[in-house]
């Protein structure tokens, strides 16, 4: 047992040593030019945006506007830690414009245009009703079969 636990400690220590080397894993290699990428159209109101061309030690924010001219910046989003990608959600139907801004140099990325077009409500409600009917059918079937099995189980005893 002692040898075994010692072995486990050795394996865990080996994994732990990788910890020292892991810092670089989250960072991207620096590229020239800030670029912003993401989907062009989404149907669920959530999506991910990715920024390239930012050095490991640098930070950036993503700006949102409703016009390509960015006359008014409606919201800004900062990524978590050293990540170069972020997730956004809960967007209503509409066309949105995003750009990344380097926090140090003020350099702007390309402007990314994204359309949010939710599924039609009739389609969603149709699936909802279908699911509800199927679920009720399953419940009724289970109830009938369970009762029948209980009745059959008791019959021989009384017979």
């Amino acid at each position: 047992m002692q040898k075994l636990l010692f072995g486990i400690l050795v394996v865990m220590s080996t994994l732990g040593s990788g910890l020292l080397l892991s810092g670089a894993a989250l960072a991207d290699t620096a590229q020239s030019g800030l670029t912003l990428q993401g989907p062009d159209k989404v149907r669920e109101g959530y999506f991910q945006l990715r920024v390239d061309g930012v050095a490991e030690e640098d930070t950036f924010v993503i700006e949102l506007a409703s016009s390509a001219q960015f006359a008014t910046v409606e919201n800004t989003f900062a990524p978590l830690g050293a990540f170069r990608q972020l997730s956004l959600s809960g967007f209503d139907d509409g066309r949105y414009y995003f750009r990344a801004v380097h926090s140090g140099t003020g350099e702007y990325s390309n402007i990314h245009q994204l359309d949010v077009v939710h599924y039609p409500l009739w389609q969603a409600l149709s699936l909802f009703v279908l699911g509800a009917l199927l679920f009720i059918s399953l419940l009724v079937t289970m109830l009938i079969l369970t009762r029948r099995a209980a009745r059959n189980h008791k019959e021989p005893r009384h017979g």
Binding site: R43, G90, H118, Y119, G131, F135
Partner: peptide, 15 residues
């Protein structure tokens, strides 16, 4: 949409 009870994708997700 996160507060919308008629969020289409969420309704489809339920059942």
């Amino acid at each position: 949409r996160l507060l919308d009870l008629l969020f289409p994708a969420a309704i489809m997700f339920l059942f």
